[in-house]
Design a protein around this nucleic acid. Sequence first.
RNA 1: AGGGGAAUAGUACAAUGGUAGUGCGGCGGUCUCCAAAACCGUUGAUGGGAGUUCGAUCCUCUCUUCCCCUG
Length: 362
Amino acid sequence: MFSDKDRVENMDSRIKKCGIPDKTAGMHDCRKPPMVILSGPTAVGKTKLSIALARAADGEIISADSCQVYRCMDIGSAKITSGEMEGIPHHMINILDPWEEFSAALFKEKCLQCLSGIYEREHIPIVVGGTGFYVQALLRDIDFGSGDEADHSETPASQDIPGKNGAYRAWLEELAKQEGAARLHSMLGDIDPVSARSIHQNNQKRVIRALEFFHLTGEPISRHNEREREKEPAYNACYFVLNDQRERIYEKIGMRVDEMLRQGLVAEVERLREMGCHRGMVSMQGLGYKEILAYLEGELSLEEAVETIKRDTRHFAKRQLTWFRREKEVIWLNKDEFEYDEDRILKFMLEEMRTRGILETS
RNA sequence: AGGGGAAUAGUACAAUGGUAGUGCGGCGGUCUCCAAAACCGUUGAUGGGAGUUCGAUCCUCUCUUCCCCUG
């Protein structure tokens, strides 16, 4: 597999090109591998900008998107087409079948493999996508506490996600169903009172993960998280967040969903259903998919499904923005401040990258 | 024009002669292995005027607006 040590060694050639002394320290450390991140709420226009950026900076794109990793989910995930890629290499797109499970931990693992290749080619990795958690997992090199040294690289079944104990999880889920959320929450209180205080008892997913973590490692997840939270970014990164006025984003979401329908979202989901996809799958929890599945099963009218997609996508965009506000090192790109001029945005981004020694000053 | 009905938060609907509720939306937040997921918090209304009453969103009158029926 791929250790951190390997990655750092692969960096050497790249690092030599970073001539700028480290004045600012910490975040802009040129000894760290370079990385550009372009994120932002859904439908702001990340994809389009990313191509121009990759061109200008001689980069390769890594998609940080929890739906675009899946094959056969093109329209609903607003996946870039091969034509739109304009020859720029894209990673982390179409790497899984829809019935496979995916997670932030897996994302990070797979990204590390992509990164080594990109650095070998002396290209700049440009992480593009709206899944803030994935970006964070990569940027901070979060350890998800797999705990075991077993060689899982050969395991064919993706169910065997390291650090995830399926049987124990299932048992907890069953227990919650039988005895209620409060029961699990009080179990958590016994082993990890700190987590119990910060996780609401209704948030069963997280209560279960905290219990599972303790079960697997013998350590309270709160202590683990505290340690992880202190980590500095593992890369010399420019973390851009493209943003626009809220009403504009909402308006674009509505138009984009209508466009997806015109392009055949219903047919796409029908095809997935014929392949055996159902709502229990991680992939089918994606916006646009779960609602159209509900329509196909007669639970919603098409009109209701469409309105629900639009509404939930607006909610999603709002949550994304909440996430980015919390990330300290974000460089905001408010489109209105650039008068909606993409060239100006691009110029600004390149300048920021030079300041941090990610691009050579020219 | 005549007759009838209705006006409560952005919206849909409750309720009571004495602190006006709920869903949806809007806004804010949490997040370290399902994150396009899951969860939490918060905002905001009785159409205008007059009367009865200790007190009116509720009862009465009037104005305004909307809906239905007749012509």
